[in-house]
Design a protein around this nucleic acid. Structure first.
Lengths: 137, 137
DNA sequence: TTCTAATTCATAATCATTACGATTTACATT
DNA sequence: AATGTAAATCGTAATGATTATGAATTAGAA
């Protein structure tokens, strides 16, 4: 996902083009890492000192709803990242030191479905945390 | 894990026997479900109106540290549960309707380790959410 | 029974997140 | 280009979960 595609989606849903949205999207465009609302505000306050959490959170919610961002939770806070456009189901290794994210295309959810007759699987979370090769030094 | 074993561990680490701890442990003993600090306080306030979040959270932290409880996060809050004493590595299916928990002994983490040379896996989370057979009706 | 460290109580502080009324802005329409 | 209006943002306050603190209480050893 890139900014251009994100705007297509936003436009298609009647959302307006604003500087704040542009800034938020550009922050996500230039990194693969997960970002928190706080990460965003810290940077965006430099250009827009008045920028409030309301604006950040409202737009994050919109972006997640439209599939522009994906969301997860770790270290006690919500983390957001540009949605992967890889077509196959996958998960992420997240480096706890630098935040880098690596795609992991291994998931036992289908096998699991067969092992749980009578159960309905609505969602699942498979996330791996550790240190990436660079941080392992 | 049961209350008796929990007290052995607490004693071995120099923790004292208190009514509050007894109550908290007994709540975990009588259910398999995950409980939040709020769940506990709601019930414990009946017997001890003065009971505060401080007491709850402090003891939950102690219990997790000693391996008496296990902790996870979903629906935006921390959830606690008596630590499983099943000897093999496993995960949980959690029913989002009634809270029931089912053990799932399927985890691709070893395969994954081989697929991520240079990476150090420090922890991982594999959790399945949905509806259990009873709630599926 | 006394002593002391551990524990709890009562309350306030903090942190992430959400809510709200007033103001401003994007952009379709004229 | 000017105008009208719904959408978006600002400024600030509220909420909910969690953590911190200092005073009072209590468990358990001596």
């Amino acid at each position: 996902m890139n900014r251009t595609r994100a705007w297509e989606i936003l436009k298609a849903h009647g959302y307006k083009k604003t500087d704040k949205r542009e800034l938020i999207l550009s922050m996500f465009e230039e990194t693969d890492k997960y970002l928190t609302a706080r990460d965003l505000l810290e940077v965006l306050k430099k250009d827009y000192p008045g920028m409030s959490y309301d604006t950040i959170y409202r737009n994050l919610a919109t972006f997640v709803e439209l599939g522009i961002l994906e969301e997860t939770e770790f270290n006690g806070e919500r983390n957001f990242r540009m949605h992967c456009e890889i077509d196959h189901h996958h998960h992420h290794f997240i480096c706890m030191e630098c935040g880098n994210v690596k795609e992991v295309s291994l998931c036992p959810i289908e096998k699991l479905e067969a092992m749980l007759p009578g159960y309905t699987i609505e969602s699942h979370k498979f996330e791996i945390y550790g240190k990436c090769p660079q941080c392992n030094g």
